[in-house]
Design a binder for these strands. Structure first.
Lengths: 144, 144
DNA sequence: GATGACCGTCAGGTTCGTTGACTTCCCGAG
DNA sequence: CTCGGGAAGTCAACGAACCTGACGGTCATC
């Protein structure tokens, strides 16, 4: 009975943090923005832009999954795809001006959520949590 | 950049544990059983059965969500719904004989996953993880 | 130059969950 | 005693975040 709770708690905690981030963004005037989208914005290199595959790698998901998020962000004008001059197959995802503004806001929102989490947990437990998750996923990766 | 990783890691860790549980169950001869289903089986009171709403409450989800899982388990003969003698509205979810056998297997599978997790994390970190999650979700609940 | 690997894409699925809108039934207050 | 609020289970529709598989171009190398 104890362990399925762990799995569930992990999911619940994920949802909680994601929801908090969304609220934080809303309060800052960026409504209808989801955590996955904010996360993507933060992963695009501000200067040179970043390829889709690289974004997927950073986020630890498939390129198909990442493409959906890029699509959404592109429609809303936060990001645009430009052909990669060095590679005809590739496209580079870049932030628009609006996207850069959003990026700044996202960093603040993320910091706020992190600070709140850290406060309710205490610094020690917070660090412990991060460490445990790092370890868990790292060793999973190796076995895979 | 640091925090959105936390949220994502929580999700990834959830998927990992759920997948491990499924594999564990498969290896024990119970294929095509998902983590949510196993979790439900473990939450049904072995003697008296449990109402749908109560199951939903225990799992921290809506009764609609819980109903789906009960439906699946009922179709496969692990569980059945009987009218509650004390309340004409309610039905009691009970394990069938096959369901009880599955329950025992689930407990073992869960224990195996837990043991493996504990081993990769170390007892100290494992306990810390659980504690952190408890705290995180508990205080979330209060604010809600 | 053919061959295999790689980039982005399209199409379709899966898992776990949600909100909203009933119907049926319980219960307590007027 | 009825009658109105509320709770139990259900039906339907949807959402978020993923996945696998299959392709058409492009690169890079042999």
């Amino acid at each position: 009975m104890t362990e399925p709770q762990l799995g569930r708690q992990l999911l619940a905690a994920h949802r909680t943090l994601a929801a908090e981030l969304v609220v934080e963004l809303e309060e800052r005037g960026w409504p209808e923005l989801r955590a996955s989208q904010a996360s993507l914005v933060l992963n695009v290199d501000r200067r040179s832009g970043t390829r889709l595959t690289e974004l997927a790698r950073r986020a630890g998901v498939t390129k198909q999954a990442m493409m959906v998020v890029v699509d959404e962000l592109e429609v809303r004008g936060f990001v645009r795809r430009t052909p990669d001059p060095d590679d005809g197959r590739a496209k580079v995802v870049r932030l628009t001006a609006r996207g850069r503004t959003l990026g700044a806001e996202c960093r603040r929102a993320v910091a706020a959520v992190e600070a709140r989490t850290r406060r309710t947990l205490g610094g020690r437990r917070y660090e412990g949590l991060r460490e445990a998750l790092d370890l868990l996923l790292e060793t999973e990766e190796e076995t895979a």
